[in-house]
Nucleic acid binder design. Structure first.
Lengths: 192, 192
DNA sequence: AGTAACACGTACTTTCGTGTACGAGTTAGG
DNA sequence: CCTAACTCGTACACGAAAGTACGTGTTACT
């Protein structure tokens, strides 16, 4: 999905380069939203000019990184068993995706600076809808609280995940404990 | 606390300028951690050169803004009644300071980029200690949970406050509801 | 094997923010 | 009222990063 193909097809090595670049972009931008194009190219083990050959500008690159992260998210989330009580579904959802979401949240912050605000929300709408639906269902079942806007409940989970990622980076939270703690924290927030 | 006074005194108008600059810095950096010196000078209604007359570089300015925010925080917090059950104290603490803390959290992010990491923690240690002490006390009283590190409990409150500020800025949370929601959310997180 | 696609280096132009230098006009305060 | 302190504009040097231009060598695919 890099530069709009003019109809002609791409070579295999180009495909590989693009994949490495996008991957590196996700990694770098998650750590530092202001990572330079050069940093990303280096991390991808690729010349800066090669990168510009596939992505015309920073905006296109960030968008591609976001799209890739979102795609990975959809992939993981689509395999989660959604049956059973909302609380249990929530736990399964978080177990399989908290780290991914945490990473993407940082990436999203990066995107906020370079992409138009509307586009960011648009990309982010899909995954958010999944959690939102679960929250509503939990409310209907009477196990999730109803004294706050659903939007807040959904977003505060994001903020907690983002925080967990930060704490991990700063070594204030042991990686092996993070999953448990995130799940317990979120459960407490949503519980009726 | 701007440029190290060489012993000579400052004039009243200089004092006023400094106050306006620091105030503008807090405002601008809270909205955009990468706000330029020029932006801040303009927001203060002052020429850029005037600003440089009082703060030698960006680092000094950011530090002054942080210090001022912290000072304001201390002022507010020192007036909170700390007697009674920990839960009630928590509510009073949040009621009087959530918005200030939310603002300062954004400022802190700004500082992270320009100030050495140690210095940031150092400045931030005071206010954090207050909440930490309250959390420990609540744990002793058996009303706050003990299944997570105190550090996490303290910091996750910060992340929630930061999130609330974001939601406010994006108009996804009505300002008049924010206090109530923040308090309810934090209570749920800390409750045993 | 030949050709189009690709990798990639060098070098240039822009843009932007930081920080410095100089200097002239204005104001506070003894 | 006089002087030091302050304001503030213009201009300049510097570095970082984005993006462009051009050329050469290499590799994939038919």
């Amino acid at each position: 999905m890099p530069t709009a193909p003019t109809g002609r097809r791409r070579r295999a090595d180009a495909e590989r380069s693009i994949a490495r670049i996008v991957s590196a972009a996700r990694e770098c931008l998650s750590r530092d939203p202001n990572a330079s194009i050069d940093d990303i190219a280096k991390a991808a083990g690729v010349g800066r000019m090669t990168l510009y050959g596939h992505f015309r500008n920073r905006k296109e690159l960030v968008e591609a990184a976001m799209a890739d992260a979102l795609r990975a998210g959809e992939e993981v989330l689509s395999e989660v068993d959604l049956s059973g009580p909302a609380q249990d579904v929530l736990v399964r959802l978080l177990e399989s995706s908290w780290s991914l979401v945490a990473e993407s949240t940082a990436l999203l912050t990066a995107a906020q600076g370079t992409l138009p605000a509307g586009r960011v929300r648009e990309l982010h709408a899909g995954p958010a809808a999944r959690l939102e639906e679960l929250v509503r269902r939990g409310q209907d079942e009477g196990v999730f609280r109803t004294d706050m806007p659903v939007t807040w409940l959904v977003n505060v989970v994001q903020y907690v995940l983002h925080g967990a990622a930060e704490e991990n980076r700063a070594d204030r939270l042991k990686p092996e404990d993070t999953g448990r703690i995130v799940i317990a924290t979120v459960r407490s927030i949503l519980a009726a």
